[in-house]
Amino acid sequence: MKAIAWARANLFNGVWNTILTLVAGYLIARGAWMAIDWGLIHAAWSAPDGRACRAITNDEGACWAFIEQWYRFILFGRFPPGEQWRALIVVILFIGMVVVSCDRRLWRSAWPITAIWVVGLIVSFILMHGGVLGLPVVTTDLWNGLPLTLFLSVIALAGAFPLAILLALGRRSDYPIIRALSVGYIELVRGVPIISILFMASVMLPLFLPAGVNIDNLIRALVGLMLFYAAALAEVIRGGLQAIPTGQYEAADVLGLSFGQKTRLVVLPQALSITIPPLVNTFIAAFKDTTLVTIVGLFDLLTTASNSITDPQWRGFYVEAYVFVAAIYFVFCFSMSRYSRSLERSTER
């Protein structure tokens, strides 16, 4: 009864609204039906090769057999198949570290989180790279797919965040030189496409380094992303800093708090908590932007997916491949979005 009353009040109140409701309802139902028809009813779940799979689906449904055959390549790329358990552990470890760090109870002191990350990153590096404990060496050009995507986005964002805080504070500093440097950095980096930064990091940087000094391509891309994200995040954080009333600064001043204490204990906690929605927005955009590393020859999740569809046996199943990868991206981005909602609610007072 309640549902009918709601529908009447919101969907069918008037001629135009009723027409709109019917048209929209038809389109949604039709779209949903097409997706179910393609993805489930006419889909083939198992087949020896692409030709056989097409014969089953008659080109009217999804060929999920392709994913069944290729999911390991899409997830881990050229990481040696016998060693992929190592990459899988790293993926789980990264997700675990991020989830644990999201627990507000851990934020009271910097030590637990720092310890978790230092240990986690060392373990991850050993697992990925090997060369010790009898693990065969896997060079960084074989770090592909999901581990690479997580590695780049998580470390770049984690490194960018403190840098962004410094830049945002610098931009509001009383010292003209610090302010000019911060503004200069932020505007310069933000005014350039991320692709050009990746190119510079990957192609131009080696030209400036002395002969014989070689920085790994992965590290160069990582640093490039980090520097770019720092500028983007700095602007978001600056917005939060500007929203703090002067009374808060004055109250901290008259209590005798030093600049550092005032910033750390009074200003930043408030500024960051009001910027949670735009921060998470930037995080989500940054996570998806890591796909651009493909242009400097790194095989992230999207690149492994596009490579998988070039196999002669399984040529052309791009919709299936991209739907699979899109679903993975969606799970990560949607989780971030949900977490931000819960964080917003818990900081509302």
Partner: peptide, 28 residues
């Protein structure tokens, strides 16, 4: 040595009442 009370209170909204009171004595 000089305490101050403002027209707009200026309490720290992200801290509890108790934390508002203990912050400066502990840190300063």
């Amino acid at each position: 040595d000089v305490g101050m009370v403002f027209q707009q209170f200026n309490l720290f909204p992200h801290l509890t009442v108790l934390q508002n009171l203990t912050l400066a004595p502990v840190k300063v």
